[in-house]
Design a protein around this nucleic acid. Structure first.
Ligand code: MN
Ligand code: MN
Ligand code: ZN
Ligand code: ZN
Lengths: 147, 147
DNA sequence: AATGCAATTGCAAATCGTTTGCAACTAAGA
DNA sequence: TCTTAGTTGCAAACGATTTGCAATTGCATT
């Protein structure tokens, strides 16, 4: 008797299945990196992913992390963010689209979504004779002092 | 409706006066670079500014261009844009605030302004408990094919 | 299970845009 | 003119990322 997997938690896409489907080998380093990405809730950079990967498999190299990130990005499995001043940071794709507010003091990244803004962007591009392929909206701010 | 065309074209501020006022020396290389920035209508990168500067003064170095750009940025005289995939590009400050649409095929940069979006950003940040210090809105698109 | 081979790896070296150390030069006030 | 701190050009250093290459490995094939 097979038990249907409970599907309550936020969606955790099966990257390995996607890789195989794309004819890409599922190697040990990729498994490790994939697991890290599946579990993480934040926006780690390549070095941070590398550090977490090391703890699982001492032999993984930073090059492979970079190569894997690029591969996953091209597959559409992750998004790359080039926030001001720092290295690229990643997050798994698959969730709803959102933009980011970066706390310039702590570096914290807060996600938000505004359908109004998304729609206005569309209208602006259209008026200029363009179709938007993708966009980038980042708010850099500091916590408002409670007074 | 956003109709009235904003004054996106910057005036021609007197940078040299501003520099002297800030106790910064007005040297030959700086004069050359400043003139280029005052005249340009586009968003050149450091290398492009260097090339244009060379034509006026053969002895100028790329380092000095970079140093000058950083100086002017810190003074608030120019804005630096880190569009996707390329080196930083600059434009003189002083015009009205605007954001950019980048033609992903030609690299063209089109300026636009949406007070509605600006205001929505404010509201979003406020709701999240933040004050916006600055932001970045870039639309990447391709020209809609007229058929 | 053993074979064959292209895909993938770790490593080091290379790349790119940008910054920096330093000795020579120079703007600008006295 | 003198003085000196600010500025320069040059080359080397930089940080993030990419790449060449020989060794290794996934996996389709026997
Ligand atoms: Mn996010
Ligand atoms: Mn502009
Ligand atoms: Zn968005
Ligand atoms: Zn704006």
């Amino acid at each position: 008797m097979k038990k249907p997997a409970p599907n309550l938690a936020p969606r955790k896409p099966d990257y390995e299945k996607a890789l195989r489907k794309a004819g890409i080998r599922v190697t040990r380093p990729r498994k490790v990196i994939l697991n890290i990405l599946r579990e993480t809730e934040d926006h780690p950079d390549a070095l941070e992913i590398f550090r977490r990967a090391e703890q699982v498999d001492k032999s993984i190299s930073l090059s492979t992390v970079y190569r894997t990130m690029k591969l996953l990005e091209e597959m559409g499995a992750i998004h790359r963010h080039a926030f001001e001043g720092g290295p690229s940071r990643f997050e798994q794709a698959g969730g709803d689209h959102h933009d980011h507010l970066i706390d310039i003091e702590t570096g914290d990244v807060i996600e938000f979504r505004s359908d109004r803004i998304e729609q206005l962007q569309q209208e602006i591009a259209r008026q200029l004779g363009y179709d938007i392929v993708h966009h980038r909206l980042e708010l850099y701010g500091r916590r408002r002092r409670a007074e």
